[in-house]
Design a protein around this nucleic acid. Structure first.
Ligand code: MN
Ligand code: MN
Ligand code: ZN
Ligand code: ZN
Lengths: 146, 146
DNA sequence: CAAGTAGTTTAGAATGATTTTAAAGTGAAA
DNA sequence: TTTCACTTTAAAATCATTCTAAACTACTTG
């Protein structure tokens, strides 16, 4: 288990953005590579389309906001990133694609990761007939004391 | 416990919409009474602002969409209803104000209640310093089989 | 009961996130 | 190379929600 994860990490680190996109079934365009370089560096982050466009700009590149949205949708549908269930008016994405959970500071919108094994989710209810469990998300809403 | 709930139910059923609004600290306007009559009947439902406006219309009344939003915000802030954390582009509200959870059919957006005791949430992670747990929401995403 | 006032409603305008349009550009297969 | 489906883009459109500012109304006080 330890060794598997080790090789997986190394393998993932060694893959170029182009290879990661190809492996995900996406044509590696210039724009997708720019985004892959920013997002697929192994660091977990939560971000919006606008956050990402800002990062693209500060990396010396630029991209239409429509393209940012197009790419985020493609990346999400391929499982390269995921979208977090939050009732904020702006979509929030996450580079941590494993099943995990969040603290949500409802005042600021800030999200903090909770790893899957930090929550006991053994007794789940029976899944409705004809459906299957496609992911569980636990959200713990935080409020400031006093 | 049984008897307490029994009296609570009866009491709640006997209260008029006007009394419920007063008790919640809201001035009972004509518009809020129309909404209270629809929402506070003890039946659990999930709905959007537009859903509610449709119900208002079919009850023979009518109301500006701005007022629907104003009232929903007031009702939510008073704890008469709550808003569900969902990444849909339209806000979803819930008349079930107890802590509970949901199945989400991501294709249709349909939500199904999961009562709090149907999920084992004993081992929660430590809440960050200076904050307190202001509610836990578990979302189980459903996908259709085949 | 008035009259006064803070809180509420409303139509319509504004805002902000996201999607669509349609035309120009590009990656990859042959 | 040629070809074509896929992609990018600026600009317009869409859609949910909020704002504005003027008219209204529920309660308080006299
Ligand atoms: Mn929204
Ligand atoms: Mn949302
Ligand atoms: Zn996360
Ligand atoms: Zn519910």
């Amino acid at each position: 288990m330890f060794i598997e994860n080790y090789y997986q990490l190394v393998y993932k680190d060694i893959m170029t953005s182009k290879e990661k996109l190809r492996k995900a079934g996406l044509r590696p365009t210039k724009q997708r590579m720019i985004i892959a370089n920013i997002l697929l560096d192994g660091i977990n982050r939560h971000f919006t389309a606008e956050n990402l466009q800002d990062e693209i700009n500060s990396s010396g590149n630029s991209m239409s906001i429509a393209t940012v949205y197009n790419c985020l949708k493609k990346f999400r549908n391929c499982g390269l990133i995921k979208q977090i269930e939050t009732s904020k008016d702006t979509a929030v994405f996450d580079t941590n694609t494993h099943q995990h959970h969040h603290f949500l500071n409802e005042e600021t919108g800030e999200l903090i990761d909770i790893e899957d094994d930090e929550i006991n989710l053994k007794s789940l209810p029976k899944i409705p007939q004809g459906y299957f469990n496609n992911g569980v998300e636990v959200l713990i809403k935080l409020k400031k004391q006093d």
